[in-house]
Simulated scan of single mutants.
Amino acid sequence: MLRPATDDDLDAMHAWRNQPPNREVSINSHEITPGEHAAWWSRTRTDPSRQVLIYERDGVPSGVVNFFDLSAAGPGRTGSWGFFLDTAGLGERGETLPAWLEVMREAADHAFDTLGLDELTGEVLADNVVVRQMNRRFRFVEGEPESREADGRTITVIPISLKRENRRRRQPQ
């Protein structure tokens, strides 16, 4: 289940984002300071082009889905997204893979059915082979790789996109 993030979620979001497995696959891989996190939340929570949701698995807060660059209503509506999970908590419960599949499914449903997007975009590090495979499973298409400097390192970033008509739909049970 996805629900809007609130001020009460700030500490958990900050802790999850700084977990090493999440930092290792992020464009900005440095440890986020409490001040950086508070400034981000202050800008984000009132920005109409953004939406931050908490992913709950069996009633337990377990991750963050971040939608941004949401375009205004109308044809060709687009937005970008990213997510990260509580890798430590889900790992302890043996729920990492099912949670990963579920959050991706729920985020795509939210993007297209709730936000009304026609296209969902994002980015993935080129060396993050597992995420790239999962993205393909969900029918995201990769664009041309791009080299970038981030946190004092050169990284290769691949843009991804998923159009509404190409999305994988849940099968009726």
Rank of each mutant, 00 (worst) to 15 (best):
L115K: 07
A73D: 15
E102D: 15
A38F: 07
F84P: 05
G152S: 09
L53W: 05
R168A: 11
L162Q: 01
A15W: 05
E119L: 06
P34G: 06
S71P: 03
I155C: 11
S80E: 12
P145L: 04
W81I: 02
E144A: 06
A39D: 11
A72M: 10
R50I: 03
F83Y: 15
Q51P: 02
M1G: 12
G35H: 11
E92S: 14
D127F: 13
F84V: 00
V130T: 13
R164K: 14
R17P: 04
Q133L: 09
R137D: 07
V60T: 14
P159T: 01
R139G: 05
D113A: 13
D9P: 00
L101E: 11
R50Q: 13
P61R: 01
S71M: 13
F84C: 02
R170S: 15
A12W: 06
V60G: 09
A72S: 12
N135A: 09
N166K: 12
R168C: 04
R43N: 12
G79M: 00
F67Y: 14
A73K: 14
W100A: 14
G116I: 04
T156F: 03
V157H: 03
N28M: 10
E149Y: 13
L117W: 00
S49G: 15
G74A: 09
P61D: 00
L85E: 05
G91I: 09
Q173Y: 15
E24N: 12
F138H: 03
G143M: 01
A73V: 09
N18L: 06
H37G: 05
D151M: 02
S29Y: 04
D109M: 01
E31F: 05
A99M: 04
M134Q: 10
W16S: 04
P61S: 05
T156M: 00
R93S: 15
V64D: 02
A88V: 09
E95C: 12
P172K: 07
G82Q: 11
D86R: 02
P172W: 02
A72G: 12
E119Q: 14
L125K: 03
Y55T: 05
P159H: 04
G94A: 11
